[in-house]
Amino acid sequence: MFEARLLQGGLLKKVLDSIKDIITEGNFDCSPNGLSLQAMDSSHVSLIDILLESEGFEHYRCDRNIPMGLNITNLVKMIKCAGSEDIVTIKCEDKPDNVTFLFESKDNDKISDFEMKTMTIDDEHLLVPDQTYTAVVKMPSAEFQRLCRDMAAIGDTVNISVTKEGVRFSTTGDMGTANITVRPNPSGDQKEEERTEVQITEPVSAGFALRYLNSFTKATPLSPTVTLGMVPNLPIVVEYKIADMGHVRYYLAPKIED
């Protein structure tokens, strides 16, 4: 059986908010290491990779690997019924037809349980290689969100160029062009999460669909910083770390010049 108790139930809402615009269903894989999900958007252009490590839960029991296929839209509806401060317990049997969600209020004066039907999802798992990124940019997640939103007001595709001087985001649309350069600022008085840091072995440049990058920024409430990893001619990774728990990562295929 699988049973996991999460003290910060609000975290689950944030995780679901970060994927609900991209996928409509997904297999949550319960394993002794934690709860994970890998899923592609309907156009198979991007890939979501979530990991919530077992150590991050107050109680975690998983005897064997269990794929828990869930409709994300319905899951969002159920988790919405939890208070943001509620403790959430997720429970299911080894071959589940249903998953139980138990919500306990912080003061233990209200307990609710919801049962949701599982579904069989035949999805293709992809092997994401462990790779060294040619360029890694760490920046405030709110700044990245703002930047993607601003770029999307002008064009559909953003070109991201990373050099040791900084990261240049450029787009072109019917009304004109936009360029935003973010420079590394590791030496100021800023707190660590307010800094922009760039690590590169060589300059990298590629174009990406802003529609997807904008969807990824729905994960902003999960982390004060976001990390972009780029390798020439490979998908970009956009990573939001979840403190003491794991991550939400998005991979997006680059645009290819015809």
């Binding site: 592609m40 156009s43 198979h44 252009v45 991007s46 890939l47 293709e124 798992h125 992809l126 092997l127 994401v128 290689p129 595709t157 174009g207 669909a209 490979l234 998908p235 991979y251 997006l252 295929a253 680059p254 645009k255 290819i256 010049e257 015809d258």
Partner: peptide, 14 residues
Amino acid sequence: MAGQPTIASFFAPA
């Protein structure tokens, strides 16, 4: 115009 390949054209099936 730039084309949009799928993610599976970069990552092999697991």
